[in-house]
Amino acid sequence: MNYLASLLVLAITTALINNMVFHFFVGNCPFIGVSRKVDMAFGMGAAVTFVTTIAAVLSWIATYYIMAPGAPLATWLYRALTHDPVKVSDLSILSYIVYIFLIAWAVQLVEMYIRKFFPALYKAFGVFLPLITTNCVILFVCLEIMKHIGLDAADPWGLDKALVYAFFAGFGFLIAIVIMAGIREELDHCDVPKPLQGPGITLIIAGILSLAFMGLTGVDGNLARMIAKKPATAEKAATPQAVDVHHSYSVAPDQPATLNP
């Protein structure tokens, strides 16, 4: 139960709160470039989700077994070659190069597979696949996963968490780009000031959307607390009085957050 709960919190955090586009700013190029029509946006989002998941699995395997500090396969090889029984290998300097080629490879693989076996699907989002290699979302997800593997990782992730993280990161991108496309379709009927037409107004709308998504901050913390009700001795002791003050953005910008007088 606890395990499922942690996955749920991770999924919600990734897709909604730390949304790839609105919080980490990754994947902005397609977000601005391919968000004119809802169906195209959906195709792009779906393609990104798909490739991200596959690339994340590949990079988790490569990192866990070969590149992370103390990775079993590389360490075994290193020890066999040098007859040094204590030292561990650390190939993490290669990780950026490996990731980018894994991503390119995954994109090629997915493209060929889909063209062969799902022609209809290929028609729907095949055109976006080559563009995806340079989509920051995928590399960003690989890098995040890298941080959670290895001897000195504070919060190690297994393949399960990496998979959930990658899928929901892509899903968050899908949500963002579809919402944006919906707005931009309506925007065609509006009278936008000339200098702002095109990317300008898109960015401003993205800013407003990002403001809206910020309203979800804190959902993860409260959800985690709600699910983990029981280890309360320490938790409860910390909470008795200050319950009525909400941590929201409306309280504060006009008053500097200092200690109470």
Binding site: G200, A206, I208, S210, P253
Partner: peptide, 25 residues
């Protein structure tokens, strides 16, 4: 008082959008 929102993600989008408008103008 400081505009907290400018440090946060929305500030980035809005600033870039407006500056782009200014440049075009």
């Amino acid at each position: 008082s400081n505009w907290v929102i400018m440090i946060l993600p929305p500030g980035a989008f809005i600033t870039l959008g407006l500056l782009m408008g200014v440049m075009n103008w």
